[in-house]
Design a binder for these strands. Structure first.
Lengths: 343, 343
DNA sequence: AATAAAAATTTGCGCGCGTAAATTTATTAT
DNA sequence: ATAATAAATTTACGCGCGCAAATTTTTATT
């Protein structure tokens, strides 16, 4: 309480009755000093509320405790949710996670990486913008900073990739929809920002062919990250023109589906598998709001926990391996089909 | 390209043909050196891709360029959206914004503030958890770090508060609903996490009394940040028990309303002002997804840009004022009523 | 009690920069 | 051209800590 302010580790070591290097050792790894010493330090911390200057630490340490987390668009609840989980895990492991969003802009993604480089992070978890990313810049970055990509893969970049298995998503939804009704059309953006969208389209086509059906891809106009609006506008157009070739639609992702459902409601088209419904809509992701759409959305769910934990674990391994893996690994988690009211 | 790596400012000054203090001066304020010198430095930066070590800078500077942004729950799109805007403005102003989410937990909020303190940020923008916040800890923090509260106020804490005027929200929705139909009941959580909820309830009661109607507050069970689920479960219960005293409901916030609408859909209760609708639902916030609910949500909209810009501007003023204001100010922005299909 | 092992200490250097005072050089005004 | 001003330089110190090597003290083993 009424103690004099401790200004640095020297003074703190003095009041603890220990030498500065010993205290320094403690802060680097509390288990590296004997337990009696550890207790003395910890009571002194309580008493004097001292903590080492983080800038001085990081200036001298070879490896900082910083971890960068970069997502393409934080206002997308999918990324918010996964970033939330990742950040929490990093905190618990004693790291200092710093979260950034590129807001869909290449320039900002580059700036963030540039700023991050200066922080000499122990590692970075990067979900790149995808198509809009500056591949060369990211590659340059990963040469300096141990990086694990997640969610959206860029071939050959980063020490590892952790994400979801798009084929598993689409194969389950297509299989289910086909089994329980008409085979679906596939609804997507014309120029998707995210490479997962391309994988999903290909998975859809391949699944349809395997099941002996004609694939039917519907591409709607739109760019950027306002998926709901794009989905809604595209669906309104197609539904009004009666250009929908099937009574079943598989949306590339939940945010498009949210827009699609909104259009259906507006046009008074009943969606679902109940009596009186003329359309079934399913999707992929299990967006946090998919439970609360009208009707609630049948979708293939990301294994959020596995992707978040897998990314973090992979990064920790990478850090412990000195920042390089001998071989770039790709870890894909399968989806879980979640049946709700919409299909 | 094929130049040797510059290791520090000393070396960089050498290849620029300048002295280190001059270069240092440039990095602190590019306009503080003569333009010919500035150009020499800037071409050298291009050529050698040098940037000063951020830890060494911050260790010695009185004031860092770090800005902390702390929100209570980042998976809430409202906070994601406002954090996005704030972070962008900080970047543009040459600061290094660091975004953190307390994930609804007091312990984590305290830990974040504790970690932030060590980064000696020039300033912090804090949207506290509210009821769950550790008032004493936050107050202690604000004594060390110049802090502007936003979104959710704690009386007397921080140098300023910037947020939305809850009375403006509720008065507009209540006035509109009353004018265009039956006066609304007010739908909220029993123990709201956020102090804005309390202000909204009081505003509702006062508006109803002013208009000569009996206020009717419906409180549903639930704690935490899963507002949609709480709204849905609460609405299901009340609607099934036919315990709704009016045909018009004003939800405390959009996330509750999203849950409410989901319950209505499930129970096949048509919501809106169109023919054949038996219920009107309105709300507050203009959540990013309010446009895409079924039906789309009539709501009082935050002035997102004003709140984001206002917070940032206030913080910048605070920083320029040396971290203290002579008087704590509170800036409240009014809502804009957005009429959609639900009411 | 003697010995080995572990922990703590002392000593001393280095990190990359900010900053202040005194001095020199370059620019502008008269 | 001379003086006045502005800009750049030199010199020197400090920030708070990491880290390594050599030494001393404490703890564990037999």
């Amino acid at each position: 309480m009424g103690h004099k302010k401790i200004r640095n580790m020297e003074e703190f070591a003095a009041v603890s009755g220990l030498s500065r290097p010993t205290v320094s050792k403690y802060f680097n790894d509390p288990d590296s000093v004997r337990s009696s010493t550890r207790e003395r330090i910890e009571t002194a911390i309580e008493k004097y509320d001292y903590r080492p200057n983080i800038f001085a630490i990081n200036q001298n340490r070879k490896l900082t405790k910083n971890i960068g987390i970069v997502v393409p668009y934080l206002a997308d609840p999918f990324f918010a949710e996964i970033a939330r989980k990742i950040q929490k895990r990093c905190f618990e492991a004693g790291f200092w996670p710093m979260l950034f969003s590129a807001h869909g802009e290449q320039q900002l993604e580059n700036d963030i990486l540039d700023g991050l480089r200066g922080l000499r992070p122990a590692g970075v978890l990067l979900a790149p913008l995808g198509r809009a990313s500056d591949r060369a810049e990211i590659e340059k970055f990963t040469r300096d900073v141990p990086t694990v990509l997640f969610d959206s893969n860029i071939e050959g970049i980063g020490e590892a990739f952790v994400g979801s298995d798009n084929f598993s998503f689409v194969s389950q939804t297509v299989e289910y929809l086909t089994r329980s009704g008409e085979p679906p059309s596939f609804f997507e953006m014309q120029t998707p920002a995210n490479p997962n969208a391309n994988k999903r389209r290909l998975a859809y086509i391949s699944m349809m062919e395997r099941l002996g059906h004609e694939p039917n891809v519907i591409k709607v106009k739109g760019e950027g990250w306002e998926f709901e609006r794009i989905g809604r506008d595209g669906a309104l157009k197609i539904l009004q023109e009666r250009a929908l070739p099937t009574d079943t639609v598989l949306c590339s992702n939940d945010r498009l589906a949210i827009g699609f459902l909104s259009a259906c409601y507006e046009l008074e088209i009943r969606v679902g598998r109940k009596e009186g419904c003329s359309l079934r809509v399913a999707s992929n992701d299990d967006h946090p709001f998919a439970k609360f759409t009208s009707p609630s959305l049948t979708t293939a769910a990301h294994d959020y926990d596995s992707v978040a934990n897998g990314s973090v674990e992979t990064l920790f391994e990478l850090i412990e391996s000195g920042g390089r893996f001998s071989k770039r690994t790709e870890t894909l988690y399968p989806a879980k089909l979640v049946l709700r009211a919409s299909a």
